[in-house]
Design a protein around this nucleic acid. Structure first.
Ligand SMILES: [Zn+2]
Ligand SMILES: [Zn+2]
Ligand SMILES: [Zn+2]
Ligand SMILES: [Zn+2]
Lengths: 136, 136
DNA sequence: CTTGACCCTGTAGTTGCTACAGGGTGCATA
DNA sequence: TATGCACCCTGTAGCAACTACAGGGTCAAG
C-alpha cells in the first residue's frame, strides 16, 4: 500500500508518517520503481500502535521504548507497565494542576462587573498573584 | 534595576525577559553606559502581569491583547472578560479530555499481570483502540 | 591583576508535528 | 496526443514559548 492509503487506514497525516520514518520510529519501507514508499500490514500495525499511544499522550521517546519492548516479545513486560504507570501519574498531576487553574480563573472571571479597564477586577487580578487563593 | 534583579524580583528567567523584549511584549528599557538594560517599577509590574498570566495558561497573543487593554484604561473591559472566559472554557475542555485519558490509561495499566512482552495486555491495548471504552 | 559574577548579541535547540516549494509519476479523458 | 489531475518525492522552514549556548564585554573585590 502507498503512503496515502496507509494514511487513510490509520488516520495519520502523510507528513507525519514521513516524519516518523525520519526520526526512526517507523522502519523505511520498500520502494516501487517510481520511488514510492510501499507498506505492508506490519507497518500498518506499528503505525496504529504509535498513533494510539500518541492519542493517549505518550511522548515519542516513551513510544520508542514501548516499541523496542514489543519488538522483543521474550522480554519481561515490567518496563511497559512502568512507563504506562508513570505516564498515568503525569496525567493525574496535570489534571490536578488544571483544576487549581480552573478554579482560580473562575474566581477571576467572576469578579468583572463591566466598566472601564482601569477599574476591571480581571486585569487587576492578572497583575497580582497575591490575590490568588491557590498556587500555580 | 538590572536584568538579574528583575529576574529575581519576578521569578522570570533572564533569557525569557530578553525574549519578551524581542517579541515586543515588554518595551525596550533604557541602557546604562555599559549597555546594560535598566528597568524601573513599571517594567517590573508589567512583567509580573505577563508571568502571572502565563502561569494561568494565557497565550502570548492573549496577553498582548490584555496588555493593550490595560495600557488604555478608558477602554471598556469587555474584551478582557471575553478573553478570560474563553480561556476558562479551554481549560475546562482540556480537563474533560484528560479525565477521559486518565480513565482509559488506568484501565490499560490495571490489566498488566506481569510476564513476557508477547502476552502483555498493556502492549496489546496500546496497539488497538477498539479495546478502548472511550474516545480520545 | 586576576577571579568571579554579572551583562551583551546572535543563533540554534526543544516537541511533535505541519506546510510549503519545486519537482516527478500515473491514469483518465478530450 | 495532449493535458489535467491526483498522487508521490525531497528538503527546508515554520509553529509556541521558551532555553541553552558560544563568544565576547564590564565591574568590584581580594
Ligand atoms: Zn472587567
Ligand atoms: Zn495567581
Ligand atoms: Zn504487562
Ligand atoms: Zn483508544
Amino acid at each position: 500500500m502507498k503512503i496515502g492509503e496507509l494514511s487513510r487506514a490509520t488516520g495519520a497525516n502523510i507528513e507525519t508518517i514521513r516524519y516518523y520514518e525520519r526520526i526512526g520510529l517507523l522502519p523505511a519501507p520498500a520502494r516501487t520503481a517510481a520511488n514510492y514508499r510501499s507498506y505492508g500490514p506490519a507497518h500498518r500495525s506499528r503505525l496504529s500502535f504509535v498513533r494510539h499511544s500518541r492519542e493517549l499522550g505518550f511522548t515519542i521517546e516513551e513510544i520508542r521504548s514501548l516499541l523496542d519492548l514489543s519488538d522483543d516479545p521474550a522480554r519481561d513486560c515490567g518496563e511497559a507497565d512502568r512507563i504506562a504507570t508513570a505516564h498515568l501519574g503525569q496525567v493525574e498531576a496535570k489534571i490536578a494542576q488544571l483544576v487549581l487553574l480552573r478554579d482560580e480563573l473562575a474566581r477571576i472571571v467572576g469578579r468583572c462587573r463591566g466598566g472601564i479597564a482601569a477599574d476591571c477586577r480581571v486585569i487587576e487580578a492578572l497583575g497580582d498573584h497575591s490575590r490568588c487563593e491557590s498556587q500555580h
